[in-house]
Amino acid sequence: MVNDAGQLYTMEGVAAGVIMLLTVYIVISTTSIYTPGDTHIPDMQLEQLGSDVLAMMDTPDTNGTKSALETFVNADDDAGFESMFLSYCNAKASGAADDLHMSANVTYRDGNLIKEHQFLAPDNTWTGRESAVRVTRWVQLDSQPGRTTYAGARAQAVLVEVLLWRA
């Protein structure tokens, strides 16, 4: 004789079984643990920040004048470039300034060769193990007789490459 006593115990047993199966599935399928550093979110933010800083520096104050970036690159003025770049990218709305560091290269074409000029050497926080991002900006230099840096006196387009990291 079949009776219907204990139906809830049966249901409970089934539910417990489903929960255990799901737990085992999740444990087995989690082969790695994600931390915020793995997800590239800070890299994306840093890259956007660096690109925006370079875009700001490459914007002239008034129409027809040269941008700060073009002036620094043309004069090979690494100190002025570093100070402006870091003051822009370390600026915060409130509290202490951020702690970003940078180095920079300028890539130019000399005849058939693509060459690099070390514009700004990395400071002593650089160990080679930082998770640095690279941001770039094209700069067009007018022809200037007597210029010896980059590809010489001719008018040229050079690529400024900045390596940016958080110390």
Binding site: R109, W138, R154, A155, L159, E161
Partner: peptide, 26 residues
């Protein structure tokens, strides 16, 4: 800068800069 570049004969140079540096570095 097209006019000044053309006058000084640097049009092809700057174009080649852009094309070749893009390929090499980007």
């Amino acid at each position: 800068d097209y006019g000044p570049l053309q006058t000084l004969g640097y049009l092809d140079d700057v174009e080649e800069d852009i094309v070749r540096i893009s390929l090499e570095r980007k």
